[in-house]
């Protein structure tokens, strides 16, 4: 891991603690040591990222990678996706959508709204682990957006 990658913070918006833990375990297993900031609801996550503010949040000055669950208790993940991608301070952060559904229409909608990747939480756990580990590889090659 070089220093540049260490600076990328992973923001995980996931209400299910079990899912969050499993994702984290697999990320760590892929030898990705980046900081992970977790939120279990949409409101707190949006407050952290503040996509509607005129000034970016101090946290948003760092390069972020966002893992977004679509099924949140307080708001739709699609809503959060649209707001993050619709704001100039946050639209360049890569967003990876996590969901239990394999409904092709929902997947299409996510890509239409600007999602960078889509991971189905599969019941075949080994596939899931592989996908998360590939995420580690993904982290190794993503272009970190230029910060102002």
């Amino acid at each position: 891991m070089d220093d540049r990658h260490q600076t990328v913070t992973i923001v995980m918006i996931e209400d299910d603690a079990g899912h969050a833990r499993l994702i984290e375990k697999n990320i760590r297993r892929a030898a990705v040591c980046n900081e992970i900031v977790g939120f279990n609801n949409g409101a707190e996550a949006l407050e952290y990222l503040q996509p509607n503010g005129t000034e970016p949040h101090p946290a948003a000055h760092r390069p972020l990678l966002i893992l977004l669950d679509l099924n949140l208790p307080d708001m739709s993940g699609l809503d959060i996706l649209a707001r993050l991608k619709g704001n100039e301070h946050t639209r360049r952060f890569p967003i990876i959508v996590l969901t239990t559904t394999d409904d092709s229409r929902e997947i299409e909608k996510c890509y239409d709204l600007g999602a960078n990747a889509y991971i189905t939480k599969p019941l075949d756990y080994d596939n899931f682990s592989t996908a998360i580990r590939q995420l580690g590889l993904f982290l190794a090659v993503i272009q970190i957006p230029e910060m102002a």
Binding site: D16, G18, H19, L22, N71, T100, K121, L123, Y125, F128
Partner: peptide
């Protein structure tokens, strides 16, 4: 969702 946890 819970099933993902059980299996995972």
């Amino acid at each position: 969702a819970p099933l993902v946890n059980i299996i995972g």
